[in-house]
């Protein structure tokens, strides 16, 4: 679960995902102006980056090991 990949070939460097991420997981790589995953462990899997990416460059996984909540 969580953000898996930002395809550097598809990323257009618009920065929408960088602003969108509530957890500030994604940052812009200054050198080539591409979005990169910096804090993958803090991703809360809200899908906002993937859905708002105009280039469809981001994939978020839906696979999850269920946490135990109620026994």
């Amino acid at each position: 679960m969580s953000i898996q990949r930002i395809d550097p070939e598809l990323c257009v460097g618009c920065g929408i995902c960088v602003d969108t991420c509530i957890m500030d997981v994604i940052r812009m790589e200054e050198a080539d102006h591409k979005a990169v995953i910096k804090y993958a462990n803090d991703c809360m899997t809200c899908f906002c980056c993937e859905l708002e990416c105009p280039a469809k460059a981001i994939s978020v996984s839906t696979q999850v090991k269920p946490p135990l909540s109620w026994g």
Binding site: C46, F47, C48, E50, L51, V60, T62, P66, P67, L68, S69, W70
Partner: peptide, 19 residues
């Protein structure tokens, strides 16, 4: 925001509820 998460298949079967 959760378009990707939609899974029509889940309207059948049993799914465990957590809090």
């Amino acid at each position: 925001e959760v378009g990707k998460a939609i899974d029509y298949a889940t309207v059948t079967g049993k799914r465990e509820v957590i809090w």
